[in-house]
Amino acid sequence: MIRTIGLGAVEIARAMWITLIHLLRRPVTNQYPNEPVAVYPRFRGRHVLKRYDNGLERCIGCALCAAACPTDCILVIAGENTPEARYSPGERYGEVYEINLLRCIFCGYCAEACPTEAIVLEYDFALSVYDRWDAIITREQLLQPHTPPHIVLRDDTTLEPNWGQWGGVARPAGKAEGQASG
């Protein structure tokens, strides 16, 4: 009886001590709209269509991505490149390229299937829209380089958040190195 009471008192004291220590810690919350989120290099967010260094589109309109897509959310209609209007190095290019983000499950099979590494799943995760039709993103949107301000990339090897890229602003106050949640 006495032993039980003693053990109980010790356990209660330990529990209270643990919580007291945590009371004095700095909160680890990432205050998302004000502070950026640090995403990992293999994060699969919104798609982006890439270009070659000379400005030509990588996409050749082969529609392998649409074939690989498990939810059939990609529509590709190829167009012929002409000498006057040349979009990509090959014969054809993706004249219509639409992704329905409401159906997309962000599996990344399209990026795996792509022979020219044209379509890549990048880092944007804030994809809400007011109109359902706006969730279908078009070729023009996909070709824009997309670096939203609420995202900070992590270094490929060290996985440390690269706060410097965030609008040139220093890392949010109180965030220790590697402490920010991703």
Binding site: H22, P27, T29
Partner: peptide, 13 residues
């Protein structure tokens, strides 16, 4: 607020 700080959160802010 207090319970949040015990949980290492911010609480309503």
């Amino acid at each position: 607020k207090l319970v949040a700080r015990f949980h290492v959160r911010y609480g309503p802010n």
